[in-house]
Simulated scan of single mutants.
Amino acid sequence: MKLHWSPKSPYVRKVMICAEELKLTGQLTLVRSVAAMLKPNPAIMQDNPLSKIPTLVLDDGRSLFDSGVICEYLDDLAGGPLFPRTGAARWQALRWQAFGNGLMDVLILWRNEREREQPITVLMDAFELKARASLAQLDTEAGALEAGAFGIGHATLCCALGYLDYRFEAMGWRTLAPALARWYAVMRERPSIRLTEPADG
């Protein structure tokens, strides 16, 4: 299987965390791919007309995207535990996945706006407000995260917090969400999290 991949993308990291957890990394051929908002990548577009990563190309030529679909495919392929099948555990896992995805969306838009020559202040303020409110809510859920079995929700939230460290270190999010920070410190010792830290290059 071919994976359009980048060491910086939190969504690609989510897929790689799942692959590590499921012992599937050896089945993936990583193709370094740059997906810029203003410069569609023809190589990615051959497999995904949206020019977005991650995109997984299966051995039969079919393509899967986005990260949630790819992660669920890998979990199904391996008969894994990352997506609970029924009941409250399933909805909690999917909710945390959606929460983490939403926070990553906010952070990426915030960073893009921050990099503009003349950032729009009202947008910057809105992104920061949403990020801080999300951290406050997640801080109240740290106990539930700690008590639950590691799954897609945990993986996604780790990616969001890792992206905060990578792109918004000055925010000092750990002082805003100390219980969440303690949970994340434990998660960072997990091999799948440690091995997929975002990096330049």
Rank of each mutant, 00 (worst) to 15 (best):
M1G: 11
L3C: 10
L3M: 03
L3K: 12
P7A: 03
K8Q: 15
P10M: 08
V12Y: 07
R13T: 05
R13Y: 08
I17R: 00
E21Q: 13
L24H: 07
L24Y: 05
G26L: 07
L28G: 15
T29E: 15
A35Q: 04
A36V: 10
M37Y: 12
M37H: 13
P40N: 06
A43H: 06
I44H: 03
P49C: 04
S51D: 04
S51I: 05
I53E: 12
I53R: 09
T55M: 07
T55F: 12
L56R: 08
D60Q: 13
R62I: 05
L64T: 02
L64W: 03
L64C: 11
F65A: 15
D66W: 02
G68D: 08
I70A: 12
I70C: 11
C71H: 01
L74H: 08
D75F: 03
D76N: 10
L77N: 02
G79H: 03
P81M: 02
R85S: 11
T86R: 03
T86I: 14
G87C: 08
R90K: 12
Q92Y: 00
A93K: 05
F99N: 10
F99K: 10
G102D: 10
L103P: 06
L103Y: 01
M104T: 12
M104L: 15
V106R: 05
L109P: 01
W110L: 01
R111G: 10
R116P: 09
R116W: 07
E117R: 05
Q118N: 10
Q118M: 10
P119L: 05
T121P: 07
V122S: 15
K130S: 15
K130Y: 11
A131V: 07
A131H: 02
R132H: 05
S134C: 12
D139C: 11
E141F: 03
G143M: 11
A144Y: 00
A144F: 02
L145E: 01
L145I: 00
H154T: 09
L157A: 07
C158N: 11
A160C: 12
G162H: 05
Y163R: 00
E169A: 14
A170G: 14
M171G: 03
W173D: 01
W173V: 04
R174L: 02
R174T: 15
A177H: 04
P178M: 03
P178V: 06
L180H: 08
A181M: 09
A181T: 00
Y184V: 04
V186N: 04
R188Y: 00
E189D: 13
P191N: 05
I193E: 02
I193N: 04
R194Q: 14
P198L: 14
